[in-house]
Design a protein around this nucleic acid. Structure first.
Lengths: 202, 202, 202, 202
DNA sequence: GATGAATGAGCATTCATTCAT
DNA sequence: AATGAATGAATGCTCATTCAT
């Protein structure tokens, strides 16, 4: 009888270890040895669970996206009012925990990766898929708000959702660059206020 | 004097060549040989103008920032009205030319670079400096708008400028990922509209 | 007793599986995993029957030599006339079946192996032993022919047997390299004719 | 001005160093480091002259074949009589110097290599070409001998040349396996005698 | 006995950097 | 100043072998 190992769990463990290092050193500057050390296994063992180092990044990305997606969806789960929903979404996306910080950096590197190599098969497909999914949900919320008369009627839900998600990434990145200079809660509040009410004085 | 100019020009040529390749393959996957080939000089010659490969990225980043900064400032130069100025800024930041695309990817990689290695001396300082500079100008515009009564009085100019610049990067990145799915002009218009008027129906 | 038989049988099965792969990929490029897969057992199981991968090659070589030897001896078994015997030997040695082809390649690799590493204990000893044995039989045939007056009296039986066996290998190798260019039956007939009658016109 | 290095000469030097090691340890068991050490250059330098390790084997094979071919042709150069020519050819092919021994082992490994991987492009083509060339010369000699009435008229020149070259390899291999047991000169003489006069007593 | 997960030594290859010319 | 040959450290990946189950 052979040892029973939960392949999925192991993959996930290794991917998690990898995220730790990727976040600190970047994909290219991380050695498989370092990942193995972090996961407390031998280097060769990594290759029982992953075909290549890039494969590890893929898995890590997938898990990261799942988690980010899960968090966002969770924050919406018990809400019904479109305004509240959008607020929750924005609040969730701009809440930065130390763990999230790590994940975010790897997420950004993954995106850059794709930006360069557009052929990257399944990986990028999952990625795009996931992003689209969350965006679609946002589109729905905006539409719902328009229907209910809460949101202005000329809002292009698609384009706006697109902007929103872009803004999440950009603002978070900006913030990570400049932590000391800004208070994220303040930024988030300002973002919320402006997103809903605009800059113009009425 | 002429020698110094030549040296600067040469550095710039090499940096430009590097941007071409960095954009396509990323910093780590670009070899000095490739950069030299592109610049039509010998590999060894690169080292007469740059101390290390990273040094080339630094120079490239600096030039990129100068250009982006220049573009933004130029778009503001002959305007006086705060609303028009902000509109111009947003429009400029969300105009995507093929050349800009390339630059943007390297810019993003540079940012990621800094996010990881916070000690990175002069490089990161120049970088932050430049970003801060443009942000300060934006802050001024918003303040001016508040003073003139065009913008709502409770707007936190600093935080809002911060959001704005984050949003630029994020939206552009999003767009580059998803070119086929979206029309950047439409997105930009929606962004403008929402930024000034907000989502709520008044 | 049955355990021992089983063990032998299993060793043989594994060795046979190994020959399949060795012939196609060479010893160094064959993995133990491939051999195990082919033999439909687990990788670890291989090591219950063989101490090392080289050990598998040894066993395979031994079996191959046994088979080759057996074939040669069998072809002689019911003959008495030296000329007929030698003819049969040559014919047998130059008959190429698909299975033989595979075996031959591994046999050649084994020989090369020995050529390089002369210390290789038992393995090489078995090998040499086997070759010597068949050569001795050939020597006997030639001597018998000389005694009977069929073969020329100045023939050096030892040297000639030596040549003969060398020629077998070389011709077969040549042929495998150049299958499409030659008809092995024709080559074999010419070999026989020349071996017995020489090239000179009498 | 850059250093002037004779690329061809350097390649050849490296290939020669490689033959030394290949002969002793075989292609797979030879490391590029060992080759570099032997050639007294750095490991990386090897890759300025060869694309891969296999490329080194190719070059080595090519050089070996050139040398073997050159030797054979040289031994024929000033002879005119077919019998003398064939004798010289056989004598040359069965003369074993220490240097030749090394070369021969690598030559054999190369052949085995091809036997397994028939697609191996240019390499195998050069190889076959070279072998064919020498064989064609031999065919000519035999035909000439037939025309002059020296050789029996029913000799199939093609098939016989084929056998001859196979026999060379095989006998040499046999001999290298069994140096202590045989005197190569004696074997060669016996081979010559039997090749020309046959085994039968007339 | 049988399994296959785990190991880690080992190797081909790449590439930033140096330096003799 | 310019070159490009030389270097060798660094790293992804493989695979024979071991051993807990």
């Amino acid at each position: 009888m052979s040892k029973i190992v939960d392949k999925k769990k192991r993959r996930s463990e290794i991917a998690k270890a990898a995220v730790d290092i990727f976040a600190r050193k970047g994909f290219e500057n991380t050695t498989v040895q370092e990942i193995a050390d972090r996961a407390k296994i031998a280097k060769g063992t990594v290759y029982l669970y992953f075909k290549t180092k890039e494969d590890i990044l893929n898995e890590a990305s997938k898990e990261i996206l799942c988690e980010l997606e899960g968090n966002l969806l969770h924050s919406l789960s018990r809400l019904t009012d479109p305004v509240e929903k959008l607020s929750a979404l924005i609040t969730e996306a701009m809440t930065i925990t130390p763990e999230f910080e790590q994940i975010f950096i790897v997420y950004m590197e993954s995106r850059l990766f794709h930006l360069r190599d557009r052929e990257y098969g399944t990986f990028i497909k999952n990625f795009e898929e996931s992003l689209r999914k969350v965006r679609r949900i946002t589109v729905e919320i905006i539409r719902q708000g328009k229907t209910q008369g809460a949101f202005r009627n000329d809002a292009d839900a698609e384009a706006l959702a697109f902007c929103l998600f872009g803004a999440f990434d950009g603002v978070v990145m900006q913030y990570l660059h400049n932590k000391s200079g800004f208070d994220i809660e303040n930024v988030r509040n300002e973002f919320l206020k402006n997103f809903f009410n605009g800059l113009m004085d009425n």
